[in-house]
Design a protein around this nucleic acid. Structure first.
Lengths: 220, 220
DNA sequence: ATGGTATTTCAAAGATACTTCAAAATCTAG
DNA sequence: CTAGATTTTGAAGTATCTTTGAAATACCAT
């Protein structure tokens, strides 16, 4: 899988370097910007997957920059006093914030959440046109509702937690064993086949890919 | 329109304050409770339209509090919930959950959804042509009054709290057990059937849908 | 290429859950 | 106490889901 790019917008070189090193050690590509005005330009060029934004910036301030960034998740990284009006920040486009000095693990965890390739709205998860809602047991593909049995639902729900991740047959069976305690591999194969057919019926796309000798994954 | 009241049940003052500020900026009235036991009392007094509930509470835990809250949509706000736990929470009355750290916009979106599912005027709830009035025990479909037994009323009243949400048979039986303490599954099935028939008589629409192996829901 | 193995597909049998129905038991109002 | 309404129960019928196994196909290594 291709590396995700995270842009660090901070005029403090020391902190910026530290963040950059941290992120690269954790498998992300990075880009930097040191002022608000520069950032505005750099975002267009680098097209990062996520932005870490310091509020205290020379030139255009972080608060002013924020509304100009569209469609890229922004995490505010700033001193606590700056974040007094945090609600306003969240309303003007930030997806999250962490205060300096920050906990490294927490920052990484939040980055991970906002980089997910599936989208969660509470009990509803969406991925590449598939929507799965746990509270209504409703599933739709491209907004067309489809009807699944509870086992098929459980399998899809398992796979969509981590799109593109390969699940072994055993791990899938473990996940759904509360529902179907005596589900053998042969049954699972049939359930997968049925699930495939139902998903495919909408837009003729085969979402479920078999990884030979390993298991299955939900592919985009 | 009158402001909707949202009750925040969380012992973490920092998070609670943040939520309160956020909600009030978005036009909601708020109420607070800081422990499970306090919440139990406060819910009766404030009669909120929706509740945000943290699971880790001093005194009565969130899991224990949940079944005691009736007829008010509850969104679980908690650090970690596994899939197994989610299903149990949803089946025991929660309408949704968000995990910390959460995305503010998603939380607001979820709140909005659960506040508008059905329309409440005091004791009266309406959904898709069905009107249920708790104070008079009156029910009508497309303005045609129909006569329900008190058990049928209780079942419908449970379902209409959260249209489209699936209720397990157990959770329905729990909701109505004050009226009918020894209601077995077979009885419930008959009540559902009778309720169906009466609702259907007006406009030939089947409002109650069985989700095979899971439970029932009121569908639009 | 060829053999061995894994996956896909298919149909049918088996298991389970739901609906309907009628009768018995219980409750309630007068 | 009685009549009517409500609730419970169980059984028959129906619909749906799950499992199974065998045949066909696809994949991998030698």
């Amino acid at each position: 899988m291709q590396k995700k790019t995270i842009m660090i917008i901070d005029d403090d070189v020391y902190i910026g370097d530290m963040l950059q090193e941290l992120l690269e050690k954790n498998g992300y590509a990075t880009a930097r910007a040191y002022s608000g005005t520069e950032a505005l330009y750099a975002v267009q060029n680098a097209r990062p997957d996520l932005i870490l934004l310091d509020l205290m910036l020379p030139g255009l301030s972080g608060e002013d920059l924020l509304p100009k960034i569209q469609n890229i998740p922004v995490i505010i990284v700033s001193a606590k006093v700056d974040i007094e009006g945090k609600v306003n920040l969240l309303l003007s486009g930030a997806v999250d914030y962490v205060t300096k000095p920050f906990d490294i693990k927490e920052l990484l965890a939040r980055i991970k959440i906002h980089l997910r390739d599936n989208v969660r709205h509470g009990d509803k998860i969406e991925f590449d046109g598939i929507s799965v809602d746990l509270s209504t047991y409703g599933v739709s593909v491209n907004n067309t509702p489809i009807k699944l049995t509870k086992t098929e639902f459980a399998i899809l729900y398992t796979l969509i937690q981590n799109p593109n991740k390969v699940f072994s047959k055993d791990s899938i069976m473990t996940q759904i064993e509360d529902l179907t305690p005596d589900c053998e591999e042969s049954s699972l194969r049939t359930h997968i086949a049925n699930l495939r057919t139902k998903l495919k019926a909408v837009n003729n796309k085969d979402y479920i890919q078999a990884i030979w000798g390993i298991g299955y994954k939900l592919k985009s």
